[in-house]
Simulated assay, not measured.
Amino acid sequence: MANSRSGDGMIDRTVRVLETFTADRTTQSLSELSRRSGLPLSTTHRIVEGLVAPGLLERDDDRRLRLGPRLWELALRGSRVQRLRQAALPHMQQVQAVVREHTQLAVLEDDEALFLERLSHPDAGANITRIAGRLPLHASSAGLVLLAYADAATRRRVLAAPLVRLTPDTTTDPAALDTLLDRVRREGGVVAKGTVETVSTGVAVPVIVRGEAVAALAVVLPRGADVAGPREQLVQAARRTATDLEAEDRKAFR
């Protein structure tokens, strides 16, 4: 695999191009891709043509580029996150039928909470979470759960990094956050009031499979809402999801 002058391989450069697409930036011109990826226009053009041919990227009527359905198709084949989402979704729907606000599923990815699914009622309150979007571990309720159950190296790395304050209630002091994470583990979940948006409360619990927290289930409620019922709903949903995942594992090894 040929390297660029910077030492990046072709796969690294291809990933840089793909990573310029976001939930808010779904189409881009070739020059925008070049600028945002930091790659020369000629290199970007070669990469784009290589991605368009198999359908990983596609052009719209204005010749702007967007992610292609082929990329989505390949990502779902045998994906652990897709398997997790499929196991959790029926139980999330049961929670959502009761809370009628927002119910979501997240995993730990690159020291952030990556959201795999979100169910929302049309009349639900504020929630900035998006499917395939990310939130800081120290701010979101799902992120706090994932960080509390993460390995020691991940926890040290996040505590040592700058902790951005999203609202006045976001915990940004490393010592205070460390203490909070210990409490999350002791209590088996978290209630985070106003840490992402001042008007909302996040409630989250871990999905634990064979001693490992593989995901977090969360609901986002209006700040003054009662949390006892939704939390119990989440606990039961997390247990059922874990049971289904473990059953799938046993079936796979028969």
Results as ranks from 00 to 15, higher is better:
65 L>F: 05
35 R>T: 06
8 D>N: 04
51 L>I: 00
20 T>V: 07
59 R>Y: 00
31 S>T: 08
65 L>K: 01
6 S>V: 14
21 F>K: 07
22 T>F: 02
14 T>L: 11
65 L>S: 00
43 T>G: 05
30 L>E: 08
29 S>K: 05
30 L>S: 11
60 D>K: 04
28 Q>N: 15
49 E>I: 06
14 T>K: 07
62 D>M: 09
68 G>F: 02
5 R>I: 13
34 S>G: 05
39 L>A: 13
26 T>R: 15
57 L>P: 03
57 L>G: 00
45 H>V: 09
51 L>D: 00
54 P>T: 11
68 G>L: 04
34 S>H: 02
28 Q>L: 14
37 S>F: 07
32 E>S: 13
2 A>Q: 08
22 T>K: 13
60 D>I: 01
66 R>K: 02
53 A>F: 08
52 V>P: 05
52 V>H: 03
30 L>Q: 14
57 L>N: 03
42 S>F: 07
71 L>D: 03
53 A>E: 08
50 G>Q: 11
2 A>G: 14
52 V>A: 07
47 I>W: 04
48 V>C: 06
32 E>M: 06
73 E>A: 11
45 H>K: 07
57 L>Q: 02
35 R>Q: 13
23 A>C: 03
67 L>H: 04
8 D>Y: 11
3 N>T: 06
22 T>L: 10
40 P>D: 07
44 T>R: 07
67 L>S: 03
46 R>W: 10
